[in-house]
Design a protein around this nucleic acid. Sequence first.
DNA 1: GCCCTCTACTTGAAACTTCAACGAGAAGTA
DNA 2: TACTTCTCGTTGAAGTTTCAAGTAGAGGGC
Lengths: 180, 180
Amino acid sequence: MNTASINEDGASGTAPGAQAEPRWLSDREQRVWRSYVHATTLLEDHLDRQLQRDAGMPHVYYGLLVQLSQAPRRRMRMTELAKGAKITRSRLSHAVARLEKNGWVRREDCPSDKRGQNAYLTDEGFEVLRRSAPGHVEAVRQAMFDRLTPEQVDQLGAIMRVVAEALEPSDPNADLPWLR
Amino acid sequence: MNTASINEDGASGTAPGAQAEPRWLSDREQRVWRSYVHATTLLEDHLDRQLQRDAGMPHVYYGLLVQLSQAPRRRMRMTELAKGAKITRSRLSHAVARLEKNGWVRREDCPSDKRGQNAYLTDEGFEVLRRSAPGHVEAVRQAMFDRLTPEQVDQLGAIMRVVAEALEPSDPNADLPWLR
DNA sequence: GCCCTCTACTTGAAACTTCAACGAGAAGTA
DNA sequence: TACTTCTCGTTGAAGTTTCAAGTAGAGGGC
């Protein structure tokens, strides 16, 4: 999955709507980008397969159970759960439907808001989590933390925080106060 | 894959429930892991949407076109293309079928191996790439390279290479010579 | 020649995600 | 009250990915 490569320069004029001369990636940046895409793809595939095999669900679903397990009374509003997992409410609806079929999660009406639903982790769901957590941690460890120096772990943390901040969909108009 | 899995201690049996004491992540590692998952999720979603909007295809498909565009005569054997994109041949078959419908890629029989197929990029496909490449590079830049210091870019490259090496599916039994 | 095995690729079904639309209730306004 | 608008969550269809199975040709041994 490469990014730059098609080098063709358009007109330099920057009329509204026209494109400015693209700022291509340098060779070094391209190499880093390729490594990034390559490694993240491999790791996500690896964890997906590991969890599918050992826990019977993909990584995202596992993340939902983890979130629920850490919530007070093991339950959360659907929207909060979706936000925490960074997925759409629609995707969550389908996912919870599937997890409900497995008996790992159930829904209940929210008492304070009649539109709302709580999802909660069943004992059975908690048990699945308890059984598969060690294997998952081990997979993460072997793929990443066992191979990086403590300095690299810190560096990775700092880098990922920067990237996340750039993309955080928190208040899209934060820099456009006149639109509010 | 590598020796990695679950319960690989030679000593203990693998009765359900019997597990070695898991090596949990430290607080610091957990924070970094969360940042990693968070940032990579946001970035992949962001690029998927950007490309869906501007190029009419998801990130993986875009990567296929890029690969083809860089290959000699803009064509590649299916298996090579799949390897380059780190996806299964099955997934590639479906993907190319879709790209063929768009008129961006076509297949042809491989002359030297009657089982084989070449996928090649059409002029139309190349044009789509040429049009959308600048926007894509810009998105990558804004999300990552414009925010990181040159040192961080280097660090990220090094880290991602380490992680990729740990997962590279090259010769799964390389460390288990007695199995061959 | 035959047979066996491996590789290249495809297929169809099931699982998962996205997208647009929807119903119901909350919340604000007049 | 009525009206509008927003939020919560779901639904169904279309698109994508995975999984298991399948066809056809290549390659090797006899």
